[in-house]
């Protein structure tokens, strides 16, 4: 598969939220305002890309060579948790502006299943290093697109006159479903 079509497929056609359901928790939790949604989306791109590089190298250099594949889950989650902590400390010291913008979202990312999910998918699909990177950037960009679009929709939905029982998360899920139908339209795309 060539890299451009892999990128478009991972960002839009197989959108991480609307067709793979990874990262649904922050998607529903942090999408009340467009600017916080964008902040979360950018933090996710940053962490997913970095985490994919490191987990990929660890998998190939350590787990595969030593035959320790069964430690994958434990190893990856530790790497991600340590990485998020490290990125947080690093940004605080060297880029306070960026830290201010991303700060509150970073700790939340450890339990974002998108990060671990993408790292594992890169391995199970047997991507080459370059393909894994393209897939990671594409997938996390898809996350940003989805969460920003959804925050815009949610803004309107919250002001709508609804039956009391459907307010809040119930109608948000239905709205997400309708957006997912729109994204389903991309699945016919031949690349």
């Amino acid at each position: 598969m060539n890299l451009i079509s892999l990128f478009i497929t991972s960002a839009i056609v197989n959108n991480i939220i609307f067709s793979q359901f990874l990262g649904a928790c922050p998607f529903l939790g942090v999408s009340k305002k467009i600017d916080t949604a964008a902040g979360m989306g950018i933090a996710v791109i940053f962490v997913i890309t970095l985490a994919s590089v490191i987990t990929y190298i660890v998998q190939k250099a350590i787990l595969d060579t030593l035959g320790l594949q069964y430690l994958q889950t434990i190893m990856f989650i530790l790497i991600i948790a340590a990485l998020v902590q490290f990125v947080e400390m690093f940004l605080k010291k060297s880029a306070p502006g960026l830290y201010q913008a991303l700060g509150i979202y970073l700790p939340l990312i450890t339990t974002n299943c998108a990060v671990l999910g993408v790292a594992i998918i890169n391995i199970t699909k047997e991507y080459s290093f370059i393909e894994a990177m393209v897939n990671s950037v594409g997938t996390s960009l898809g996350f940003l697109i989805a969460i920003v679009l959804f925050a815009g929709v949610r803004d309107k939905v919250d002001n709508a006159d609804l039956p009391e029982s459907l307010k809040g998360s119930a109608i948000s899920l239905v709205a997400a479903g309708l957006m997912s139908i729109a994204f389903l339209g991309f699945s016919g795309l031949q690349l």
Binding site: E164, L166, A170, V174, A176, G177
Partner: peptide, 22 residues
């Protein structure tokens, strides 16, 4: 059974639970 169905049916299910508990 496609992805949109998951969101919509879960949303309606939660709405139903809200209704019953209210």
């Amino acid at each position: 059974i496609q992805p949109p169905g998951a969101f919509i049916i879960l949303g309606l299910l939660i709405g139903l639970v809200n209704y019953l508990s209210r």
